[in-house]
Design a protein around this nucleic acid. Structure first.
Length: 428
RNA sequence: GGAGAGGUGACCGAGUGGCUUAAGGUGCACGCCUGGAAAGCGUGUGUACGAGAGUACCGUGAGUUCGAAUCUCACCCUCUCCGCCA
């Protein structure tokens, strides 16, 4: 959410920046009109309320006085009866307008940072660096879904029986590898990168979804629990960022850093026909997430260190990747700037997103009332929030399978996973 | 699911219709004091909207009233006990 006053005073800038994202600006034309109506009614009703407060005090004084003074209160009471009726009317109108305005403001995306390249879609994203040597094969490398079925460690068919399309059943070595990767990532982030591990609820209420920006605009992307105000989380970002909703943190505690392993649930509405094979796009997948709460001054440097921490995971797993800066049109609703890390997949001969690291500035903090008190100052300020996947476990698993596949169909494993997986490879 | 108790500022906690402009305390900040610190003393200390005067906010939403933190109703949440259950 952007500040009301900021939108009012910078309406052209807001229009320009939202159109960079490829969004309609008609909403913003409506904003100015409704905002003006709101201020007019607000002024009137506040004047009446002031009168009511003052007169009520007068009545109180008269009522404590003599009989004749008590009599004097009666016309005042009659007058206030009428005033109260008008206040009630105006308040009702004001509430309607406020709701309309709130709807508009909640539908305005964050302003993209000036560093963000202007573009339409992912083809306009800018590669900023590459790491690692793509593996060479003496044979044609297979996609992971073929490897998984041949080794009998992933079954899409059985998962379809249980749940339908876009689900997978990991078996034996695959489920063990998923667990090994998760533990490796959590250990790295807690022991080397200074994150506190949390295990949050996987169902959250609408207030939480609203603070991080999934609601009200993107409800169709979520799974909702029937008859409950609960949604399955699409990412750990939601419960973890909401840990400090409506709280004031101490500046000395910043940056606050959490890592969480959770399953993630996404409806994938609107992506029919895309990535239908394999583990790439599932309704349910596991992810290790990193979340930071920072001072405004340091959020961009914290974004850079977050990116490096995520890259470390891929480097330790010796998986080749590249980093891209998302262009304005590809940026998520709440983010001001995002780096995507894309891992090399030899079985599909392409790079695929495996992590997304974003700075949300105070956009989520304002929605969620997440503040801190700067040392030596009276007024609290909004924190900045950031998060990044460190990493999406399912996609890491398939990247390991494709990059480490052997001619005989077995899969070698990164050295770093030895303490977690115990054996060196997944046998045929 | 049943019974009971409760939800007040950064935190604790008083407050059952109008001298409440939310007491008091803790914490925090600044000042005095000190060789320096602690203690002590003093001052200040929320959020939103508004150019400002001001208005609103005591779990949420309605209601009663000239006037509600305070009374009524509904709902949400927390705690204790009982029941059921991994």
């Amino acid at each position: 959410m952007l500040e009301l006053r900021f939108i009012r005073e910078n309406i052209d800038l807001v229009k320009e920046k939202t159109s960079r994202r490829g969004m309609e600006t008609t909403l913003l034309d409506k904003f100015a009109d409704i905002d003006q109506q709101r201020l007019a009614i607000l002024t009137e009703v506040e004047g009446l309320k002031n009168k009511r407060n003052v007169t009520s005090n007068e009545i109180a004084v008269l009522k404590r006085g003599s009989e004749s003074e008590k009599k004097k209160a009666e016309p005042l009471i009659a007058e206030m009866k009428e005033t109260s009726r008008r206040i009630k009317d105006l308040d009702a109108r004001l509430n309607t307008i406020k709701e309309e305005l709130h709807h508009i403001v909640m539908a305005i995306p964050n302003l993209c940072d000036d560093d963000v390249p202007v573009g339409m879609d992912d083809t306009d994203n800018i590669e900023i660096r590459k790491w690692g040597e793509k593996p060479t094969f003496s044979f044609t490398p297979k996609p992971h879904w073929e490897l998984g079925e041949e080794l009998d460690i992933i079954s899409f068919e059985q998962a379809a029986k249980l749940s339908g399309a876009r689900f997978a059943l990991l078996k034996g070595f695959a489920s063990k590898l998923d667990r090994a990767l998760t533990n490796f990532m959590l250990d790295l982030h807690t022991q080397k990168h200074g994150y506190t591990e949390v295990l949050p609820p996987f169902l959250v209420n609408s207030a939480s979804m609203t603070a991080t920006g999934q609601l009200p605009k993107f409800e169709e992307d979520l799974f909702k629990i029937k008859d409950w105000d609960l949604y399955l989380i699409p990412t750990a970002e939601v419960p973890v960022t909401n840990i400090h909703r409506d709280e004031t943190l101490s500046e000395n505690d910043l940056p606050v850093k959490y890592t969480a392993y959770t399953p993630c649930f996404r409806s994938e509405a609107g992506s029919h026909g895309r990535d239908t094979r394999g583990l790439i796009r599932q309704h349910q997948f596991n992810k290790v997430e990193l979340v930071k709460f920072t001072r405004p001054e340091t959020s961009f440097s914290e974004l850079e260190s977050l990116l490096l921490e995520v890259e470390t995971v891929l480097q330790m797993l010796e998986l080749p990747y590249r980093v891209v800066t998302l262009c304005s049109g590809d940026l998520g609703f709440s983010a001001a700037k995002t780096y995507d890390i894309e891992v090399w997949l030899p079985g599909q001969n392409c790079y695929r997103e495996i992590s997304s690291c974003s700075n949300f500035l105070d956009f989520q903090a304002r929605r969620g009332g997440i503040r801190y008190r700067p040392n030596g100052q009276k007024k609290s300020k909004l924190v900045h929030t950031l998060n990044g996947s460190g990493l999406a476990v399912g996609r890491t698993l398939l990247a390991v399978m494709e990059n480490y596949q052997q001619k005989d169909g077995s899969i070698a494993l990164p050295e770093i996973l030895r303490p977690y997986f115990k054996s060196r490879f997944i046998p045929v």
